[in-house]
Write a protein that binds this DNA or RNA. Sequence first.
DNA 1: CTCCAAATATCCTGGTCAGAGTATATGGCT
DNA 2: AGCCATATACTCTGACCAGGATATTTGGAG
Lengths: 202, 202
Amino acid sequence: MKTSRFRRSNMLALAVLVCLSERPMHPYEMATLMRQRGKHESIKLNYGSLYTVVQSLQSARLIEPKEVEREGRRPERTVYRLAEAGQIEMVDWLSQLISTPVKEYPSFEAALSLLPALPPDEVVALLDVRCLHLEMELARHRSVRQVVAEHELPELFWVEDDFASAMTDAELGWTRRLSQRIKDGEMEGVEVWRQLARERGV
Amino acid sequence: MKTSRFRRSNMLALAVLVCLSERPMHPYEMATLMRQRGKHESIKLNYGSLYTVVQSLQSARLIEPKEVEREGRRPERTVYRLAEAGQIEMVDWLSQLISTPVKEYPSFEAALSLLPALPPDEVVALLDVRCLHLEMELARHRSVRQVVAEHELPELFWVEDDFASAMTDAELGWTRRLSQRIKDGEMEGVEVWRQLARERGV
DNA sequence: CTCCAAATATCCTGGTCAGAGTATATGGCT
DNA sequence: AGCCATATACTCTGACCAGGATATTTGGAG
């Protein structure tokens, strides 16, 4: 009986594999480590998911319990280690993530696709507010960079932040342009749009 | 008793509200409409979710069944209409989506945060493959634009595609730069990285 | 010395969602 | 005339996941 192939949905599972590729540890420790290294900024981390994910990795034979410890009367903690199949899976999964982009559904794109439901003037106002938020986000990224620069942390350990920052920057540029083009009617079909809103009685 | 506030998680629910703000219809018709207008490129659509989402909108009193039809011996179909609360919710939700960016977790960013788990040379190869994929995606976007230009569809109805295209473009630029900087050792810490991989025996 | 907030470590539960399944009708092809 | 692929319209089920609950220990303020 072949165990049904592991479902590569939750990135947290990959993070677990990577943690264990460093050394055996228990789930709570992985969480602490990820927090320390700021990985939770790029990978959604919450305890509920963490323990489920560890379970599913175990039942897929990618990791295995090494020992069960306990200090005083605190809850027991199970230390896991990476299985060989887990090492393979980790490299394979990570490689695929890098080499092959997947279609994702950012909520802003969704909102844009429903734009005709709001009147153009309101949209302009909302877009401008968004720009303010994005600018604040960029400032935050810059300050992060400042900090890592002071600690002389090599670039390797903050590429993800640089990426996020670059994407935010691109989004800001695009959003500004859109807002501007609606404002001065440069965008084709703004008339139709305003009409549409009026008909709908918004 | 106040009905617990509707959970704005699935964008599909918003799409349903917007569909019904146009006119009453039954779920399957919404799906067809979304497909026709290409909304399924920006909002993940599958029947399983659609019917659950409609259910939950109904129990939150945002939409209500208008009538139950049936043609021949085909399955019954329930036509829904937008409730007043639904109209409010739609405008409010959509406004929030536009005005306030939310932290999302793209899988490429996750992968980047785990980069040290792979040796640098492999990463370069993988990044280059990704670039190829992204170029193909951009080409696809361009051809979409060609088609909408031929049909003289106003820009309003394909902003989401333009956005996606701009983001892809930015990602491509960033990825190319990263690959290049690793290749020619311009990136700080590549030595440490290569060392790290060797120690790990990858 | 005592109390409260935060940290340690995991488990439970209800809601959500994707994929597959069901059953009829239509239209084109041979 | 008969057949298959596709369209119509939903339903079911199992997996997944986020949030909160639980129970102990440590550290710091007063």
